[in-house]
Design a protein around this nucleic acid. Structure first.
Lengths: 244, 244
DNA sequence: GTATTTTGTTAGAAGATTCAAACTCAATTC
DNA sequence: GAATTGAGTTTGAATCTTCTAACAAAATAC
């Protein structure tokens, strides 16, 4: 009777039981095992778990039916599956088979809000043939353009929303131009090299000024704590700073 | 270096490393732990696993960077996340926060095909303001109609596509009208009752004919193997048949 | 009504993922 | 440089999911 939310795995079992029940009234271990491609022994364990949670009526060695709670939960999962499947086939023009497979993978993390909004979306689409045709055409057009750049259509898109910390990005010291100041945030590298840098005063929080760093200069010149230092480009690349 | 596909969990770790790296060049255990809300010790284990698979450069007690393979894999996950997030915010009008949460849950099962098609969809939508406005309006209209029937907008929808076996549905014997034939598929119940039914000839594969079953008849009359039997409605409900 | 086949269970084991607690090493402070 | 802080690791344990192999019960066949 616990009401912690179901694991994706248990949701799969529940959905399988639901779908089998629609045709056979009751579900048997074997059928569930076949549907989910697992062994019979795994089903036994999952059934015990679902029974514990009050979602199925289950007696050892007998058939399985859904309780009312189980029926509600199963319908909810099934609904998510359908709405995704509908979306994939009727708007994205995918084959039923591919749509089904993708829906299986995505249905579990689907929030109630997404479910509701996608339902509304698909009603909109399905009730206006000309609209849906227009979109489908446009999609297939863009799809040709995208081509097969790589396995998931990746194309160095602008990072628009990764920013969930507000921090400014870090740069390595080579990114600063002569005259620019930075605050040292990290010193990479390890062992001796790192120790040497630290001893020169290159430590967290220090302000740093790049004095000379023309494109061809290899040792570049910097100022830290009023000391003037020479660093090889290679070393400079280990010092991560925030621009000031 | 194995190329078995990543578990959702490891994908999450990879994505976190990617996002942290964008700002900090390198990722540290602590930061990953914070982002994913797990303990530092869990991160250590995950990092070892990612390093095994050749996706990250990792030395104990040092910072983490992505290998080329890791970068590709991470971009792929990240791309999925973004496309979903874009879809949720820009077409379904969800808040960034809710969109992000839902995307996290759904990105893992997303196939390459879905990713590509949704990219095309969002390009279509984003490049035609009037189209997207029209859809958004329609959605918000339908949303009001749907109201809050229940926690995922479920509304006994017609089951359109559950049928992945071709079997005809089963009915219990009470569903058959007088004169109809059925084939016995299952006999439910247990113990004595079930045994008795079997002894009367009610077994798998037998043809059955309902002879008399007016609405008020309680013992209904049936014929199996040329024997005429009387069954209580209660018993009849245990006999699952296919219509012939 | 016995024998065989099918179905379901148990037991034992393995891999993932996670945690708390103890420990180690590196970094910073004094 | 010694002491303290803190980040990262190890250890040991728990949960979940799955498997194989052996076993038990039920259903079917003979």
């Amino acid at each position: 009777m616990s009401n912690t939310s179901l694991s994706p795995t248990l949701e799969d079992y529940l959905e399988a039981i639901y779908q089998i029940s629609l045709f056979n009234k009751v579900a048997r271990s074997m059928e569930i095992a076949d549907k989910l491609n697992v062994k019979r022994s795994s089903v036994t364990i999952a059934l015990r778990s679902l029974a514990d949670k009050g979602l199925i009526n289950y007696q050892a060695r007998s058939y399985v039916t859904l309780t009312d709670d189980g029926m509600n939960a199963a319908r909810c999962v099934d609904k998510k599956h359908h709405i995704l499947s509908d979306f994939f086939t009727n708007l994205l023009s995918m084959s039923e088979q591919d749509a089904d497979k993708a829906a299986c993978g995505m249905e579990h993390g689907m929030t109630a809000e997404v479910c509701k909004k996608m339902t509304a979306l698909m009603k909109t689409i399905n009730s206006d043939k000309s609209l849906s045709e227009k979109i489908k055409m446009a999609i297939s057009q863009f799809e040709k353009e995208i081509g097969c750049k790589d396995d998931c259509g990746y194309k160095s898109l602008t990072i628009s929303k990764v920013v969930d910390d507000q921090k400014d990005p870090l740069y390595d010291l080579n990114a600063l131009k002569p005259g620019e100041h930075g605050i040292i945030e990290r010193v990479l590298g390890s062992g001796e090299l790192k120790k040497r840098l630290r001893e020169m005063g290159v430590t967290h929080g220090q302000q740093i000024l790049v004095e000379r760093a023309a494109p061809l200069d290899d040792p570049i010149e910097i100022k830290v704590r009023n000391f003037h230092l020479s660093l090889r480009r290679e070393e400079a690349s280990l010092i991560m700073v925030k621009r000031v």
